[in-house]
Write a protein that binds this DNA or RNA. Structure first.
Lengths: 226, 226
DNA sequence: GAAGCCCTAATTGTATACAATTTGCCAAAC
DNA sequence: GTTTGGCAAATTGTATACAATTAGGGCTTC
């Protein structure tokens, strides 16, 4: 287990460099450079680049290579809209397809998240981000749809947008957790419409927080803290 | 232009072999075999396989290779639902973002499709399939969303499902063309709700035709004609 | 005779070498 | 002085060679 594949190493390197801002939008990514940075050959680098293209983080121009996609306000809006539509469908499928085990996992995650949101222990933001991610992951699993999984994978930028918990007020954090709990209740009752509605509210609420956080200081955010 | 890239040759070969049924669902695809068939090396074959994975046609098991995905009734239903949700959003974005040129192209395609559907000249099914594809493509372009494009690309199986025009009755063919025309009208008036509604109807109508065609003879379809 | 282990063959994963295409620069001609 | 042609460096695209992992079979052992 000590030896991760070279392809994953390349993928993590490039993705990290893009997310941390070491590559600016529009920049060209040369394969040799990444290969040197990640200490692998060009072959797994190419694999990683193509995967990142499928996830929308970069785009390919034939015989010219990879360029990191540009990102603006509109793209963030689109991400929220797309997630809303796809995750609502995930919730609907879940209401029909999930089993008791799925529900137990989801309820446990949601309750844990609410406790952390209420008590706010040290490092609670990271805990909540993790629990939130695992909840949506578990929901996607319980929806039993590979197509939905691959479609949502193309919104890989979403982590950027979704883990905006740093911007959340205490009330917003609790509301988010309560959304999850209500969603589980709806699923337990096999009520697809209810589940879908809660999910829709959940994501639009997140968008609202995101908007507020980015309309005042929206112009700059180049803290490259350690 | 005579020399298509080896990667595309590999991609077309594999995709063709899957769609035409030369690979059965669950079959393992070995790289060397494809490389021999397509007369290219293994490198572009791997690229093609990974792309097909992103499109959901195959799945990868580490150190074991590629297996073609299995497909059932449920997956077809999911494809229609996902397309409905994503293409409705495309229509909504279009209503806001498209320009006069986009509208002219869309209207021309839709009118052409209606004429072909009404007159039914020789080879009209292929013509309609092509026009339909180009219409949805043009709509996607006019929506100006790369995210939406990549998300819809994961439903690449959809061609299988979408070009079911062989099953369409003359009335259904006309209805489909009229949907397109109405959609253009809605877009010209910048009415996102209307456009979205028409698109929704359009895709659910297609699903209905698909269901009817597959409930009677739905059990078998192993024509491997030349 | 059955179970477990090792060994071999096949296949994937990675590295490197080679071919083809693009881009920018420099020189030469008008 | 501007433009055009082509040359050269760099980079992508492809092929092949090598390493590592896995699957299956036959052997040994209990």
């Amino acid at each position: 287990m000590v030896a991760v594949s070279a392809a994953k190493k390349a993928y993590d390197t490039i993705r990290g460099d893009i997310i941390e801002g070491r590559y600016a939008p529009g920049d060209r990514i040369t394969e040799a450079e990444v290969a040197a940075t990640a200490s692998v050959s060009r072959t797994p680098v190419r694999e990683a680049l193509h995967r990142l293209e499928a996830e929308g983080l970069i785009r390919f121009v034939p015989n010219q290579g990879a360029f990191v996609s540009s990102w603006g306000e509109d793209e963030a809006e689109e991400t929220f809209e797309l997630r809303a539509r796809l995750e609502c469908y995930a919730a609907e499928l879940c209401a029909v397809r999930c089993d008791d085990n799925d529900l137990a996992i989801l309820r446990q995650l949601a309750e844990q998240q609410l406790r952390v949101a209420e008590k706010r222990p040290r490092g609670f933001l990271e805990k909540i981000a993790d629990l939130n991610h695992r909840f949506h992951e578990a929901l996607l699993n319980a929806s039993r749809s590979e197509q939905l999984r691959t479609a949502l994978a193309t919104l890989a930028n979403a982590p950027l947008v979704f883990q905006t918990f740093r911007e959340y007020s205490p009330q917003a954090l609790e509301r988010s957790a309560r959304h999850h709990l209500e969603l589980v209740t709806a699923l337990e009752q096999r009520n697809a419409g209810w589940a879908s509605g809660v999910m829709r509210a959940h994501i639009y609420a997140a968008r609202s927080v995101f908007r507020e956080a980015h309309e005042t200081d929206g112009v700059e955010r180049d803290q490259k803290s350690a």
